[in-house]
């Protein structure tokens, strides 16, 4: 989406540079990108290793110990077992809410009435401290799978809804004028202009929604009943296996990044012929 808006803005403001145009951000040659990435990882993990070796706290493991623990947990199937459990509420929640949330956001973008009664709800939901709300879910939905699915939905729905809504509302007015001047029906305008134009933000919302959903499921697993990775974290903490506990946390970050990256790949492959 960033590319998309940049491209259309480029169209408005600068033409001197001709084809391609100049970038807002300086472009790093692609053959050197991996080097910078490597350096950035090295700095973070190096800092971690040093902090673990001082140590900043007896309970803070080194990066190397954490990686060893992560390897162990990968090899003995602990992680696979935990994620098999964690992804259930995550996938269920995402399936249930993503379609609904996109439709809702699109509806809010297209209709003032829908916007009027539902925008405040989602803005409040997005601003609400979810970690504080999740224990309350148990009052309504108990402590089972349902509660976790609800936690995932509560975390991800507002982001998806608001992004879809923004996507619709950000449709270039001149593209709308263009479709009107060529006598598009409202249906054609929505299908051929508004939705494709909003798709970037909608997909970005879905990606952020998945990341938020992961946060939601982990929060639920930590705060409602310990299952999956939430159980790993709780358990390793209770028996003071801190490298394993940090490895579990690290695995969530890796899991979330991989999921988001895969989604982005899928989006580019399926819906972005122009890139």
């Amino acid at each position: 989406m960033a590319d998309r808006t940049a491209a259309s803005r480029r169209g408005l403001s600068e033409e001197v540079a001709g084809a391609g145009g100049h970038q807002i951000v300086e472009r790093v040659p692609s053959d050197r990108q991996w080097l910078w990435r490597l350096i950035s990882f090295a700095v973070v993990f190096g800092g971690w290793e040093i902090a673990g070796r001082i140590p900043v706290s007896p309970s803070f493991p080194t990066f190397s110990a954490t990686i060893v623990a992560l390897g162990e947990m990968l090899l003995d199937g602990t992680l696979a077992g935990a994620y098999a459990e964690t992804v259930q509420p995550l996938i269920l929640g995402m399936l249930l809410c993503s379609v609904m949330a996109v439709l809702f956001g699109v509806g809010m973008g297209l209709s003032r009435t829908v916007e009027w009664f539902s925008l405040p709800i989602f803005i409040i939901l997005q601003a609400a401290p979810m970690a504080a709300l999740i224990p309350l879910i148990t009052f309504l939905y108990g402590i089972g799978l349902t509660a976790k699915v609800v936690a995932v939905m509560l975390m991800s729905a507002p982001i998806i809804v608001l992004n879809s809504y923004k996507g619709i509302r950000n449709t270039s007015p001149s593209l709308l004028d263009m479709s009107r001047s060529f006598m598009a029906t409202r249906r054609q305008q929505i299908v051929k202009i508004i939705l494709p134009s909003a798709s970037g933000l909608i997909f970005a919302g879905l990606r952020l929604g998945v990341a938020a959903g992961v946060t939601g499921v982990v929060l639920a697993e930590l705060l409602i009943t310990p299952t999956g990775v939430g159980d790993l974290i709780t358990y390793y903490r209770s028996v003071a296996e801190y490298p394993h506990m940090f490895a579990s946390i690290l695995s969530i970050i890796i899991f979330s990044s991989v999921a988001v990256t895969l989604l982005q790949r899928a989006e580019t492959a399926l819906f972005r012929p122009e890139t």
């Binding site: 309970s59 028996v239 003071a240």
Partner: peptide, 29 residues
């Protein structure tokens, strides 16, 4: 857990609990 960490890291002096694993696994003083 957090209360115990506060003691281990010196932000508090006395904690309440049974910190056997912390003492055994990370040699907390």
């Amino acid at each position: 857990d957090i209360a115990n960490q506060a003691v281990v890291n010196g932000q508090a002096d006395i904690g309440v609990g049974v910190p056997y694993p912390v003492i055994q696994k990370v040699d907390a003083p």
